[in-house]
Amino acid sequence: MKNSLRVLAALAFVALPCLAQAQTGTINASADIATVFTFGASTPLTFGSVTPGTTATASGSIAFSRNVGVIWTLPDAATTGQLTGPGGTISPTYTCGTGSTASTITSSFSSCSPATGTTAVLTVAAPTALVAEFVIFNGSLSAAQTNTVPGTYTGTIRITATPN
């Protein structure tokens, strides 16, 4: 066979399959999973009706869901949870922190009445999954504190969560 024939035959066998090759197109698929960072229902901390000169305790909590880390602060600092009423201001003693249930603190805040409102009382890294937790405040009043002018004493516990 002549060289020209060989070349032509080779071209025919090579070129035709190339022209008939499959083509591909690529598109991306994407999704963004939202950051979950939200407070839920709260249970007020209520000492109820207290007999003067006796001790009293109460517990309150607020639910929180997140899938990122969090920095907890108490913006009211040293006045967090103070009660005011007819007899002036009462400062209950608190223990505080977070827990997986509303009743048990598993991670305690470093302070329930920090020196400043920007002090991080607890810093938690991002979880591996969505976390449903509770911020819990347990309060107690001493007999001396309840031995005061009768009336209603109220206050607010403000908690700030900042994504970490």
Partner: peptide, 17 residues
């Protein structure tokens, strides 16, 4: 329910012949 936040991607290829 436990999906972490973030950006997720993949490629989809279409082959035509």
């Amino acid at each position: 329910a436990s999906q972490r936040s973030g950006h997720y991607t993949a490629r989809i290829v279409v082959i035509v012949s």
